[in-house]
Write a protein that binds this DNA or RNA. Structure first.
Lengths: 221, 221
DNA sequence: GACACATTTATTTGACAAATTGCAAAAGTC
DNA sequence: GACTTTTGCAATTTGTCAAATAAATGTGTC
């Protein structure tokens, strides 16, 4: 999934820190000390600063001049904002995928949905599905939109943030079966080339996910 | 409009290069030499590299490892891609603005539309409108969405690119009068709090802009 | 096509300037 | 006299710079 042909040191550090943040190994809200971390990783401060700059660009850390960088702290409010952005962008991605995707991409999409359907009915299915399956499905549709700008926004910036929320707030909802059904509807619309319908169904799917999350978060607090 | 309380040198360079690129003073596709430019601006290479990193983050330059940075070269294809992203994001922005904006923001929006209506009917109106008026209107609605993530995406990343296209491909269409009318419809939907309608109208407006651009670009080539 | 050379970028190191933070002494108020 | 507020200094951290080396790319020659 991630590009393995990483060339520069700054990029390697970026990817390492990225997964560390996403997995919560660097706690949300914690401060990032440049001298300390550069010692620890055995790289120069310059390379580290470069990497931190990239993390800032995809919103995984916030930075203030002369104060420093902190791992982003995720509020419920921000999560809802991100779902609203996703609803808009992935809706468009589904529309474009219906118009532009190749036969091979449709076959691959169908395989994904079939595989997830089988998994979602097993014991650990809910966990598995939420952790990788759902994101896989969305990831593939975005790629199939063939809109480079859209792909960058969703797969480079937002993808990591979504993963981070998954790790932090955990999963465990009863939506995995319903979600795979919704995936199937979206897939069919794309396969039929019905962009209007694909966008509508994708937006409904993401909106339901958001409402589900909102309920869970309400119950927690 | 731009924040004047800029603290760091890297940020100043970023803003300077940003406007230079947008206005075409640094030609699209031209290479950026780090040693040369750092000498010219009288800053260190480190600060310049920081600034170039930010430019890359908002897609104004493209960068390849060990090769260098180039001012982004705008293709017609990419312009269309950006309009598709805008259609999705600004449609959502209009919907959220209808739900969330304050009375004061509605008054301000109405003032904008009235002002643009008067300007659009003058001789130089078309030029004025396309250069600042249209972007002002969209800018204000995005702000009124009160979705920070959406605001960042549209006003920090995409805004500069749109400006750049305006400067490069020029303006001169006959859509300024029609566009202000469409603005008025969007405004009314927002004022009435009809999010569904506001999104629909905004998307239609942006789609028509895109189709108009596509026609003009077809005619050129 | 292979090889040496020149150029450019990536990275490191070390240093200094500038800003922020924390703490403690000094001043003021009740 | 006890408490709060303010002031000022020291310590830490970030921002910036300069110089040098490593590594990669492109070029010209054979």
């Amino acid at each position: 999934m991630t590009n393995t042909s990483v060339t520069t040191i700054a990029e390697k550090i970026f990817e390492n820190l990225c997964t560390a943040i996403v997995k919560g190994e660097m706690p949300a809200g914690s401060k990032i000390s440049e001298p300390e971390l550069s010692m620890q990783l055995k790289v120069s401060r310059a390379s580290l600063r470069d990497a931190i700059g990239r993390l800032e660009a995809c919103r995984l850390v916030t930075r203030k001049a002369n104060i420093g960088a902190r791992v982003v702290s995720l509020s419920k409010h921000q999560l809802i904002e991100i779902y609203q952005v996703r609803e808009a962008l992935e809706g468009m991605a589904a529309r474009l995928a219906a118009q532009n995707c190749t036969d091979q991409e449709i076959r691959k999409l169908r395989q994904l949905v079939e595989h997830h359907t089988r998994e979602a009915n097993t014991i650990d299915g809910a966990s598995y599905f939420q952790q990788t399956g759902d994101l896989d499905f969305h990831f593939h549709i975005v790629q199939s939109s063939h809109n480079e700008h859209l792909i960058n926004l969703l797969c480079h910036d937002l993808y990591h943030l979504m993963q981070m929320y998954r790790y932090q707030y955990g999963r465990a909802s009863h939506r995995s079966v319903a979600a795979t059904e919704e995936h199937r509807y979206v897939m069919n619309a794309i396969a039929e080339g019905d962009g209007e319908m694909a966008e509508l169904l994708m937006r409904n799917h993401i909106r339901k996910s958001r409402q589900n999350i909102e309920q869970l978060l309400e119950a927690q607090s």
